[in-house]
């Protein structure tokens, strides 16, 4: 009786954990290329442009965008790494003490056109932290936001300037971005909670 109950529970869990792929390797590549083109178009070139990726997959995406920009415009665009842990609004709350990692931005962002790059845009809280963090590092001319996936459910008035793919999701679902640099394979999955 008890065993049967757990068996049924396992079946349900397996069903719930079903994954759906919404972008494959080619899809990610196309999205990155398109974002790079849009960045050049919107900024009328790549003058004063810098890319800053949010740890950790945002950094990999920023590097890929920089490669595309090099192909399009021939310019070497500097890429920096931002860790926003110290700016999070949930520090000290129950169960949360994230590891602090390094911010590595070897160039000045003063008067620069900064494109912030992240993998998934969700509540917007990470981007709020990133904006505060950037302002403490200098005074950019402007800040734009590029994300691979926008899954909705914003809790702050924040939007992306460049979106790889808009994906309607429920809050129970998780969006997993896999990149070769971190995960050995490219792909974007939706995992049902």
């Amino acid at each position: 009786m008890v065993r049967g109950f757990f068996y049924a529970l396992n079946l349900m869990a397996a069903e719930l954990n079903e994954k759906a792929q919404i972008l494959d390797q080619a899809g990610i590549q196309r999205a990155v290329t398109r974002i790079a083109h849009e960045i050049v178009e919107r900024n009328k070139g790549t003058n004063d442009l810098v890319l800053i990726g949010l740890r950790s997959r945002g950094v990999d995406l920023a590097r890929r965008i920089a490669q595309e920009l090099k192909i399009i415009d021939g310019a070497d665009i500097p890429v920096g790494t931002l860790d926003v842990t110290l700016y999070r609004d949930d520090l000290g709350r129950v169960g949360i003490q994230p590891e602090v990692r390094k911010t590595e931005i070897s160039f000045s962002i003063n008067e620069k056109r900064v494109v912030l790059v992240d993998d998934v845009l969700y509540t917007g809280r990470t981007i709020r932290a990133a904006l505060d963090s950037l302002i403490d590092l200098g005074r950019p001319r402007l800040i734009q936001l590029a994300v691979l996936v926008d899954r909705g459910h914003r809790e702050l008035p924040i939007r992306a300037d460049y979106v790889g793919k808009n994906v309607p999701t429920s809050r129970q679902e998780q969006v997993q971005v896999l990149l070769t640099e971190e995960d050995g394979v490219d792909g974007v999955l939706i995992v049902k909670g």
């Binding site: 110290l86 700016y87 999070r88």
Partner: peptide, 27 residues
């Protein structure tokens, strides 16, 4: 090791113009 790794990230704050992060606000 955790303390030393965290300190490495903290050291970056000392090199900035604005030497302040909001992590312990209200403490």
């Amino acid at each position: 090791r955790l303390i030393l790794d965290t300190a490495e990230s903290m050291k970056q704050v000392a090199g900035r113009d604005i030497k302040k992060v909001p992590a312990l606000r209200g403490k």
